[in-house]
Write a protein that binds this DNA or RNA. Sequence first.
DNA 1: TATGAATGAGCTTTCATTCAT
DNA 2: GATGAATGAAAGCTCATTCAT
Lengths: 210, 210, 210, 210
Amino acid sequence: MKKREVIASVKDEKLVKKRRNEMIKGAISLFKQKGFHQTTTREIAKASGFSIGTLYEYIRKKEDVLYLVCDRIYDEVRERTEQDLGAHHGTIEGLRRAIAHYFRVVDELDDEVLVMYQEVKALSKESLPYVLNKELDMAAIFEHILRACVENGALQLSESEIRLFAHNIVVLGQMWAFRRWVLRKMYTLDEYIELQTEFLLKGIMEKQRV
Amino acid sequence: MKKREVIASVKDEKLVKKRRNEMIKGAISLFKQKGFHQTTTREIAKASGFSIGTLYEYIRKKEDVLYLVCDRIYDEVRERTEQDLGAHHGTIEGLRRAIAHYFRVVDELDDEVLVMYQEVKALSKESLPYVLNKELDMAAIFEHILRACVENGALQLSESEIRLFAHNIVVLGQMWAFRRWVLRKMYTLDEYIELQTEFLLKGIMEKQRV
Amino acid sequence: MKKREVIASVKDEKLVKKRRNEMIKGAISLFKQKGFHQTTTREIAKASGFSIGTLYEYIRKKEDVLYLVCDRIYDEVRERTEQDLGAHHGTIEGLRRAIAHYFRVVDELDDEVLVMYQEVKALSKESLPYVLNKELDMAAIFEHILRACVENGALQLSESEIRLFAHNIVVLGQMWAFRRWVLRKMYTLDEYIELQTEFLLKGIMEKQRV
Amino acid sequence: MKKREVIASVKDEKLVKKRRNEMIKGAISLFKQKGFHQTTTREIAKASGFSIGTLYEYIRKKEDVLYLVCDRIYDEVRERTEQDLGAHHGTIEGLRRAIAHYFRVVDELDDEVLVMYQEVKALSKESLPYVLNKELDMAAIFEHILRACVENGALQLSESEIRLFAHNIVVLGQMWAFRRWVLRKMYTLDEYIELQTEFLLKGIMEKQRV
DNA sequence: TATGAATGAGCTTTCATTCAT
DNA sequence: GATGAATGAAAGCTCATTCAT
């Protein structure tokens, strides 16, 4: 799916990229604290280091900021997760490592993941599909890994199961962010990864009917 | 944890209960469509069947409506889930049925679950703990069931695992609501229940190290 | 000037008198603290010991309360001032005593005097004349005394001077109430009375051109 | 006492000064007619020649307008009164002229004086001291004059008397504004000045006990 | 390209007043 | 006569967005 274009008045593309980076950085730190609706465009401009007038040279509506922020966070999570994915591809060990790696990414970006989670619904009907599609891209990473394991004979899963388990992995990772208020009291990140990985793998691997 | 009191000007407690029910019903249907922030107090009053002035006889601030709504939804989900929990208690079959039952409750109340999920963060620092505590109560239901299975020898789990798995069950249930935009394209409710129950039980039951 | 009638729905005149007394008492204590505009009708009802519905059985508009309050305060000040006025009538000593007596009344009722002073302008164009007329009645007391002194030969004043000096006495008395924030730091009531009486009498008595 | 700062969002100080002047002018004319509480912020904005949004770029709360208005009026009265004070300083003639001059200022600014008089109490606990302090500054002008007369031997007054008489002068001047509904029917401004000046001076000058 | 003053629709909340019980 | 739930006009204030400089 093609990116939704956020239209800027400024023509210089380098500048647009630079300013939007500043903007996204400023906005995320504000959204973390107060959420999208409680944050004013003036605050975003200030946190970004420019005036309200300039802000509107790079976006058309306040919602554009949210779109850019969500877009960026998804990319960040996905890109980081995809790093170091090469080794052990198509093996259980490879899957185990991918899960652990992804969980650590969520831990590092937990504020961002939370922001994204709590604010997507504020996106307009037009922007939403683009962002939800990114959610699918995340799942696709794990679908890809699972499918490779199946092809290698390391796992035996139907296509249906592959897709569901991929979502399960993604969601149980996000859960570390959106239930952190309780989970962090009970587990360290390492414990969480250890327990959930065992849980996931057992759920995925065994063939015999329970 | 004691309920946070929402103060009403009206004295007649019966009436307060009745009006608040109307209010909560009206508000949920609006929050579903547009979210808490996009919904005006006037819209809430109208959807509840009374005037803006009357609305404010039963609450103090707009946020009170959100609190009442979240409070209600949690209670609803919990109460319904706790129904029919008696039979097969402490057995794998009992656990299986509880999961299925809970997933069906989420399906029936999917809009409500979504609302709650996306709007809790709009609650004030004062209200939040009360609502998050209800989230814990939900997990406690499954902790209770799992613990009974362990006591009966049907499962072998550490306390740590019990608590984590309980959260996993709760979250994978909610997932049917908050990822319905993709999951419903792929599975019927029955398929979802079937697949996830297998997944969960296998993840929980097996003893041998993977 | 005839009293402006405040219409009551209740017919029993005894009851109207009783309830209005409660109302005026309650209202004054509220107006002292927060002023007329900041006081709600509900607060007045509560402070008066009855319900908002009952309050409106005895008045027509919120402003009626203010009218009744101002009316009452003026009467109170005037009545108390007129007490013990008999002795030494028409002599300088009588005048001196009247002034002192009036100043003491203002001191006792200083909150009330202040309320009246600061809230009259909130009265409607219809009520205002009735209340201002009471202000004239106050001045008339001293005009009467001064005139008696003139008739007795104790003072030599033109009609013009009599009227002005009467107002001066009234205002310098009120001044003890409305400038109390500064005057009380500088003088005791007795000192104030002593100094102002000397000042007033000298200003009134001397004949030779300065 | 330092001025209480009213915070503006607009940075350009020249503009702030200009807009606030327009605002004060507009507000005074409204407060004259209807009083502070009966005047809406929208009316103030309109009378000032700008939109409600713009109004709030120059103040934070409605009360700020009242503060600015009171502040301005006091300054205006004081500044005008202090003009032409040089000649005859420290003589009875100088005092006589100062009184007359001040009374004429009150006459010119009678609406303003009335507004200030009736609305100060609407100021918040925070603003009030700043404004009352200005009232003291007014009295200080006459204290200064009286003290000079005493030093020159033109008058014989204790410090206590100086301070009280200064207040008397100020109040009897304001009286021309707040009792104008009756005084103007009885006297022209010149007559009022003539009569009150005689009264004041006699009250101040004579030494022999009455 | 950058700025920030200006705008006004629209929001939450209050409160005098009414009227069925 | 007494009550208090219901009403809705109207208030203060905010903030996304525009546009002249």
